[in-house]
Amino acid sequence: MNAANRNGVSSAERPQRAARLIHHPAALVALRLFLAAVFIYAAVQKIGKPLLFADEIRAYGVFDLGPLVYVTAIVLPWLELLCGLSLVTGVLLRGSALALAVLNAVFIAVISYRTIGIVRAGTPFLEVYFDCGCGFGATYAWKKLLEDAIYLAASLVVLTAPVHRFVVSFRRRSS
């Protein structure tokens, strides 16, 4: 038997209540608009500057300049823009949430990789500061990792929500 707290909510009910709250239609719309604003802004900062963005990607030391870096520099800002617009309009909504979740997981991985390299060279973790090339300028790595973790969590909430308001669906409804 679950123990009930003084509000009469059992410990087993708490996650369900949290899920209901986080999947509340108004909360989901707010999350979509928040993510859309972030990624549309980030995209606009990078679109049309592939050489600059390629150089920023190269600074991660994951790959050297080559087709993969240039293709990423050309396509990624537009993917971010389309995902942002999709979150606003509700067209391909879950697809954009999935794409943003994957992108943010990759961002966290590469920022962590670069940060570990700098920490190993002797800089304390909290003082690691660089321009991640995200479109928001230079910042502390821990802040950027926290931000990306929030964007990842928000994308997952949008992706896993059972029902969305303001969605354009191309699927035929079964009668």
């Binding site: 049309g48 050309i74 537009w78 993917l79 389309l82």
Partner: peptide
Amino acid sequence: EAIVLLIAASIIAFTHNAYNRNGINPF
């Protein structure tokens, strides 16, 4: 849906890059 978005973004991105004065040849 994510794949559709990626394909659409790639088409728009490469078209824009081709007409952008500061575009680059990725290869």
